[in-house]
Design a binder for these strands. Structure first.
Lengths: 193, 193
DNA sequence: AAAACAACATACTGATCAGTACGTAATTTT
DNA sequence: AAAATTACGTACTGATCAGTATGTTGTTTT
């Protein structure tokens, strides 16, 4: 290579992720991206291909960060029940702090793009499957330690918690009364008993 | 009025609903709409205001139809447990038949528009609240008949079922293995026991 | 039948879209 | 230092966007 990059590719991608997360794919223009990424239009195309390529890179960055975040959170607590409670309650509290509330970039993409683009159908599905595995491993840890009832179906419960997590994330976009979400979390957590 | 309408407003709105449901707000152009509605561009503006006005009319039509559909479905069965089982299983089966899978127009709108437009935040929230009331009334019917355990918290459970319904609808957009969704439905239904 | 009125269709507006051609600046290799 | 290479910035492309001006057609009222 001759001349060196003046911008940090990772920081630029991070900025793009935020814009796409906030506005979605269709509502985001290249001009929105250049201004927030702090780079020129041709730099986007030479570095990331096209708009969809940039979106894909941003989503991959998000999912890998998010997966690590979820994994760390659940491993952080010796009690599996407390780990899930803290995880769900924290996630609710965080969403109610922000206004407006962008939800989860992967879920947003699943809703907007998956039915129209197989690449994103696969990408978003695989992230949910990955979360499901993390949940399942956490539940199995609770089964081994005896904290959880041996009658629990780890896989089915993990899948249900992923579904619940999605449902909570989505409904919070419409800003229901806090008690609505709190009640739901409470009922969902009874599945661990 | 002088000259009479040549198109059926209700049928045109129905066509618009389908387009918006399939593609979302941003990805739908006025040209998409005119061709599918079978009317000319100025007819849209004179009848529905602007693109967002048409979208709102379409979404209102959807939610009122959907609410009636859910209500009828749940009232159709003497057993509350069987009613919820049939409702969830039917909803899963229907989504897996269609390809691609547009999900729920109201949920799509909640994800795409609610964080950026208060009108749709309210509209989509109120539909979820309405569904929650239908669910709660159904659960209370089961409590009165003795079919459901008296310890059940009707409101909290209804809210949780709404959250679960949203989660299931959304995750099916990424076409997970059928067993993933079936397992989740099974676990969710245990909340009625 | 004439006048008023409303829905129709065509064709247009300026703005913005995603993507690119091209000239300039910086860094490397020869 | 000259040549090659790559990034940068400006300015552009044709296409498409949401929305509208305008003239025509059909129906009602006078």
């Amino acid at each position: 290579m001759a001349r060196q990059r003046e911008f940090n590719e990772d920081k630029a991608l991070d900025a793009a992720m935020q814009v796409f997360w906030e506005k979605g794919f269709e509502a985001t223009s290249i001009s929105d991206l250049t201004s927030r990424m702090g780079i020129q239009r041709p730099s986007i195309y030479s570095t990331f291909g096209d708009k969809k390529g940039l979106f894909e890179a941003a989503l991959r960055k998000y999912t890998s960060f998010h997966a690590a975040y979820v994994r760390t959170n659940l491993q952080n607590n010796a009690s599996v029940k407390e780990a899930f409670r803290a995880f769900f309650e924290n996630m609710v509290a965080k969403e109610y702090k922000k206004s407006p509330n962008w939800g989860c970039f992967c879920i947003n993409s699943m809703v907007e793009l998956s039915p129209h683009d197989e690449k994103f159908e696969i990408l978003t599905r695989e992230h949910q499957m990955y979360l499901s595995v993390i949940f399942q491993e956490t539940i199995e840890r609770g089964l081994r330690s005896g904290e959880l009832d041996a009658g629990i179906n780890a896989k089915g419960l993990a899948q249900t918690l992923v579904v619940s997590l999605i449902g909570l994330t989505v409904i919070m976009k419409s800003r229901p009364e806090r008690s609505f979400v709190d009640n739901s979390v409470e009922v969902i957590l009874t599945l661990l008993n």
